[in-house]
Design a protein around this nucleic acid. Structure first.
Lengths: 340, 340
DNA sequence: CTGAAAGCGCTTACAG
DNA sequence: CTGAAAGCGCTTACAG
């Protein structure tokens, strides 16, 4: 393929000038730039990323690390991030941890990311001590979305999980429910994220504010998936008298809960109300009440926070975490409890 | 950071030997290899990908191009591909076309991929003539999943869309339906894939085999999304007497259809049966009958077909397209038509 | 505004 | 099995 020397020869300039003209640096005369661009066009020249990266020390690549790309939240975040990154000329290296310890170690436990990317985006993946140490050594810039306490020095984008859970629970309380169950994340969750802890806290706070002491028998741990919601609900029903309402820590769990309830002959919302968090694409179709969170917006904002310093736009670093708003969406899955 | 010279010095060998030892080449004595590995370990050495790629001419990176990562099929494919690629030490560059013409041009219309990746995976993205020409010039190896006629020289993994649609339609015919509507892709679909053409053909073939001439009034074009399914169903209902069954070209459209039917006061399946194609994660929850297709398996197989030649495993190239099996899954959304 | 030259950090024939 | 040296294709001070 053609390389920079070919373009330089055709345009009658040095390779340094070609390099500058093609990258839009200001120190090139308009006439020269025109000639270079024409030559590059004519030769169908495309820069070699490897050579450019080695010489320039920048990769124009970002690693995006998610637990599971197939879950609604992560897919939506990645889509928004991808668009923002590519618009700015950055490549996106996707890492889907998928609960695989080996993958996690390869990505986070070594210097693998070193010189491979200019920055890292960590989505809902709180780091263990050793991983944090490894990343700190690499001294890479980054941003986290919804990743627990985050990484020192990295901005953090998220929602207020405690408040979201409080709002969901209070919605059920306002409808008159007292026996409100919670299904949420497993501490041994293979995805190892901590969002569920905050959501549980909000649930408990709302109950206590209403004078109700949380009943551990109504709190079941499982995975943040449809299957997880089904299993948790099966467990819940096996424990005895069903609750009159279930607050699921995410919409996918809520959907699993709805499915299991229906199979058990319980109607939603007549017998049991269900609410989740997310506002998944299909929540409308299922009539699921939920706390909507802006997934794409979190992705876009996080990408911007990464790109701005990389591209030399030095905004004042955000003080605390950047917390985006959530919103209660009432549909058909929540109603007052039966009066019996 | 430490580089290969540091390792060479500590191990007391040349950089060439370090390079060979670290990459596991056979032409290194066991003792030397041990010393090199120990030195690399001690210095926390990680190779610079840019330098390695420039010198070696291989990027160990694959571009994966999908229409929309948030759709079930593409998310599931990408997850499987990611795992297969990373297991073999390859990076995954994600391109989400998202119906954006500019993105599409940047990725497919230029030499952008040149020297950036060793191979390309094109998912459900038939190429236009100019794009095909551009790719052909780059002379990159690749594989397609479900991408129309594919790319000459690239293996193609897919299902038999005509047969899948035939099976879905026949299922409805077998239940006794005659007024069977079809909702499917738009020829002007911004995602520009052609799967819907095959699925429409299967629908029409099944009808004709049953002695029914397809009624254009029962065939509505829209997008392959939940919204698309809703809009198509609204349109269908606006055209007059509703059909007794709807065959949607994918599960997301089918879910949109179910939602709109319910809002219109029509019960599924008592008033209208609905069937899709995919076996989406949520099809079970929604009780949607469907033709299941193995999305993850298509991704894994396609990744293998890409990796094997790159890694020097030269399998006999597949003769025709690799067609994976589909399977009718009957749930609660299909039933005989009302006898009135 | 432009060019000559060094250098980025590896891998690969080639020679031994 | 190992090493010296060239080369991969750019970018970046530096000088003018």
């Amino acid at each position: 393929m053609t390389k920079i020397d070919d373009v330089a020869r055709l345009a009658g300039v040095s390779t340094a000038t070609v390099s500058r003209a093609l990258r839009g640096l200001p120190t090139v005369s308009a006439a020269t730039r025109r000639r270079v661009l024409a030559a590059a066009e004519q030769l169908q020249y495309a820069v070699s990323p490897s050579a450019s990266r080695l010489a320039g020390g920048r990769t124009a690549t970002v690693a995006v690390i998610v637990p599971r790309i197939t879950r609604w939240f992560f897919g939506t975040v990645v889509e928004a991030v991808e668009e923002t990154l590519h618009e700015s000329g950055y490549d996106l290296l996707l890492y889907n941890l998928g609960g695989r310890e080996r993958t996690r170690q390869r990505v986070l436990g070594t210097a693998n990311l070193h010189k491979r990317v200019d920055a890292v985006m960590l989505v809902a993946t709180p780091l263990r001590r050793a991983e944090l140490a490894a990343l700190t050594v690499l001294d890479l810039p980054g941003v986290t979305i919804s990743s627990g306490s985050g990484v020192p020095g990295w901005p953090c984008v998220r929602i207020d999980d405690v408040a979201a859970a409080r709002t969901a629970t209070r919605h059920l309380l306002d409808l008159g429910h007292r026996r409100i169950a919670h299904i949420s994340g497993d501490p041994d969750d293979e995805l190892a994220f901590t969002t569920h802890l905050d959501r549980r806290r909000g649930y408990q706070e709302a109950l206590r504010a209403a004078g109700i002491e949380p009943d551990p028998g109504l709190d079941v741990e499982s995975q943040f998936t449809i299957d997880g919601g089904e299993q948790a609900t099966v467990e819940l029903l096996a424990r005895g008298e069903p609750p009159t309402a279930i607050f699921a820590a995410c919409d996918e769990m809520a959907m699993g809960a709805m499915s299991t309830l229906r199979e058990a002959g319980l109607r939603v919302p007549q017998d049991v109300s269900v609410i989740g968090i997310d506002d998944h694409d299909l929540s409308g179709v299922l009539g699921l009440s939920t706390i909507a969170q802006p997934a794409a917006e979190q992705g876009r904002l996080a990408a911007r926070l990464l790109l701005d310093p990389l591209d030399g736009r030095d905004l004042p670093p955000p003080g605390g975490p950047l917390i985006l708003p959530t919103r209660l969406v009432v549909r058909d899955s929540t109603a007052p409890p039966r009066a019996d």
